[in-house]
Structures are given as C-alpha cells and as structure tokens.
Design a protein around this nucleic acid. Structure first.
Lengths: 223, 223
DNA sequence: ATCGTAGAATCGTTCAACAATCCCACAAAA
DNA sequence: TTTTGTGGGATTGTTGAACGATTCTACGAT
C-alpha cells in the first residue's frame, strides 16, 4: 500500500514549475545561490530551458515558502534575513515548539520517538567525531517536536521557518557550527522528557531559543 | 508619518494579479463563490478582463493562503474543508493560541488591550441585540491573542487558519450563529486574564477549542 | 559631490498557439 | 445491469513573442 501511495505522489509531481521550484530551493538551501542574490527571469529561464511564465510560477511557489522575496518591478531575490527576521522567527518558534512540547504526555509513542531518535543519532555520530549530518539532525529534532501537535499545517509552517533560519545561518556564515553547539541542549531536553518533567524540558527549550537567537542576531547585525 | 507609510503601501499595491486576488478572496469569504466551486480560467479571466497568465498568478497567491486548492491539469477550486481539516486547524490553533496566551504577563499593555477590546465591543453590541459584527469581533479577539507572541509570521499564518475556518463555517452553513455561541467563552477568558490567572484562561481556551471543534466537525461529517 | 536626464535592461502583462490531460457520453462486452 | 474501452470536446500546461511601464546605470551639468 505504501508503494501505491509512493507512486501516486510521484505521478502528482508532474508540473514543470514545481520541478523548477524544487531545483531552485535546493540550490538556495545548499548555498549555491547566496542570500540577497537577484534571480533574473531571462538568465535562469534560459539556463533551465523553461519559459518566463513558467519560471514566474516557480518563483511564486518559492516566495510562498519565504525562500525568495518578490519586489514589484524589481524582480525576485534570495531572501536575506535580518536580525529583525531572526527575532520574529524565534518568537514564532517559541510559541509553536513550546506549545507542542507541552503535549508530550498526550501523544503516541511513535511521535515521541520522532523527537528522541534524531538526538540519539547525532550523539552517536558526535562521539565518533562525525559532524557531517549534525545540521539536518538538529532540524529533525525540532520537526519532531512540532510533530507532537499532529497538525500538518503547523508542521508545514515550521518547515518554512526552518528554511528561513537556514538562510540566516548562511548569512552569518555559521551553518554547521551552529547546530553542533546546541546538540548538548537537545540531549538535555530529551533526558528531561524521558524523566517525565515536561515543564523543565520546556524551560530548557526556551533557554535554547534565547541563546540561539541572541547568538544568531548578533552575527547578523555585526555583518 | 503614518500617512507616508499609508501612501507607500498604496503604491506597492500595484500588481494586477494582487488586485485580482484580493477581489477573489473577498468574493470567496463573502460566500459568493461557494466552497468546492471550480474557477475556470477562461470564464473568470474574461469576466475580469485579465489574461490567463495574470489570473493564474492570482490563483497562486490565493492557493498560498489556502483559500483555493490547485489540482494538476484539473484547475483550481474554492477550498472545501473536511472534518479532517477542521481537526488539523484546531490542533494548530490550540498550540499557537495557547502558547501565545501564556505570554500574557510578558507583553505590552497595548497588546493586552488588543485582546480585551474586541470582546468588550461584542458584549456591548450583544446587549443591544446587535449581532451584526459578532463574527469579525470573534476573529479580532483571537487575532489579538496570537498578536501577544509578537511575530508577524505567526499572525499571518493564523490569518490563513482563520480564513480556512471561515470556509468551514460556510460549508456548515453556520457563519454568524457560530461566533455568537462562543462569545460568553471569550468574555470568561478575558475576565480570568484580568484576574491574573493565566493558566485558568488557557484552560478555558482549550475547552472552547474542544467544543468548537466538535461542533463544527460534526456539522461537516453530517453534511 | 550632488542632481538630473537619456538610454539600456528588466519586469508586468497580454495574446496566440499547441501539446498534454481530463471529462463526458456512447458503444461494446461480460 | 454493470463494467470496460474509446472516441471527441473542453480545459489546463507551457511556450514564445511582443510592448508598455518601471527600474537601473552611466554620463554629463550644476
């Protein structure tokens, strides 16, 4: 049954605009297209072999995800988060993840495991001095937290927030080191959760947000 | 200074696609375009005097706001929320508004007043048997709650959730009566907040969500 | 150095066309 | 009767070109 659902989702992936958007999203999040860069319709459309109209549709999809920003009659740019953006992003995350984490005792074991697993894997890799996937592991941890709420709308919005933060990391030139710094925090949160002290875990999460926000914002204003 | 900001925002409102999207959004939320209705590109584009490409851009904007749904090669439809959607929407609202309300003691007086004022006005009107604007007042109350978080991203996402719920009300054929029913709840929440018992207010908010969700979902499944 | 202006580059929008896909009705087969 | 092809017709997906409107750039005047 899962194979059927799989192939169905593959078939639905027909639109060219969608494919172009996926490719551009990857390029942006990988850092090949730097924040602040202007994306010329003609240049990119020509390079990818799609018409301007189709490319504009792809741009709309990415502005929805807040990866690109659209300025009227000026074009689209790779989003370049400011320190105000970072403040706003963490304000949203505090509410969403804090509120989700409080549901810890009311959710399924599978949902709880989605929070624990990423931290366990990151810790295991860190002990072998392997910090390769530490960034995605950190994001998976926070995705798991939001998943406790059981709302796809909330999870989707969180993914957009995470994508924006990835861009902020890039502006601050601290993509990997950032996640690594805060691994101990994640570990502590999971330990508190397993101990059943949800309120203390939420407190640790808030402290993590405070530290991360200040760290990131200061790097952005200095730049 | 506010006049300058005003005129600036007017100037930025240049795009035709944006204007078309605004018009369509209004039509949908007013109920002139029923949930489930398919919007033909040719028909609407011809009626509004805009080209297909521009109309498609407007559709993308409304799809982002979850007012329309896009099905590949089939067209765009006015969203018709299901009971699963309602469940998801309230799961998100529980987290967002619950988390925001907990910040009550940490925000500015202006933010707190944005929560109290809509309820006060709705109560005043209700005592005169004037239930005309009770719906928007209820939404303003919940907008105020989300505003406590101080994140425009969170507030924007909440507006999208509210818009979706408006569509659900319409499917359930209970637009005004719905809001009216729950005015006493809002009043009680504000009283608890003014008394300083934030946790109890959050509890009342949760109960409100439980009742509203069950009420709305049952009307949708019955239909 | 500041300001204004002409020209180039780019975006916003429209139009026409064709391929790809979906829908619907009708006929054939179990 | 129900199911299963199988057409044709309608609609969407995508392209390319075109032109007015807006922005950017560079050059020259003050």
């Amino acid at each position: 049954m899962s194979t059927l659902a799989q192939s169905k989702s593959d078939l639905e992936r027909a639109s060219t605009a969608q494919k172009v958007a996926d490719m551009l999203r990857e390029r942006v999040l990988d850092g090949e297209l730097e924040p602040g860069l202007r994306l010329s319709e003609e240049a990119i459309g020509g390079a990818l072999g799609v018409s301007r109209n189709t490319l504009r549709e792809a741009f709309r999809l990415l502005t929805r995800d807040r990866i690109l920003v659209h300025e009227h009659s000026r074009g689209v740019f790779v989003r370049r988060p400011t320190s105000e953006d970072v403040c706003d992003l963490y304000a949203a995350r505090r509410v969403i993840e804090g509120g989700s984490l409080r549901l810890w005792n009311d959710v399924t074991e599978a949902q709880r495991e989605a929070v624990r697993a990423p931290v366990r894997q990151a810790v295991a890799r860190a002990e072998k001095n392997d910090f390769s996937k530490t960034g995605s592991a950190n994001i998976q941890f926070h995705r798991g937290i939001v998943g406790l709420a059981g709302s796809v709308r909330l999870s989707d919005e969180s993914d957009r927030l995470f994508a924006e933060l990835m861009l902020a990391f890039r502006v601050a030139r601290e993509v990997d080191a950032f996640h690594r710094t805060y691994l101990p925090w994640n570990r502590r949160i999971v330990e508190l959760l397993n101990k059943g002290t949800v309120d203390e875990a939420v407190g640790q999460l808030d402290e993590y947000f405070d530290a991360a926000e200040q760290d990131l914002a200061s790097r952005l204003t200095a730049d």
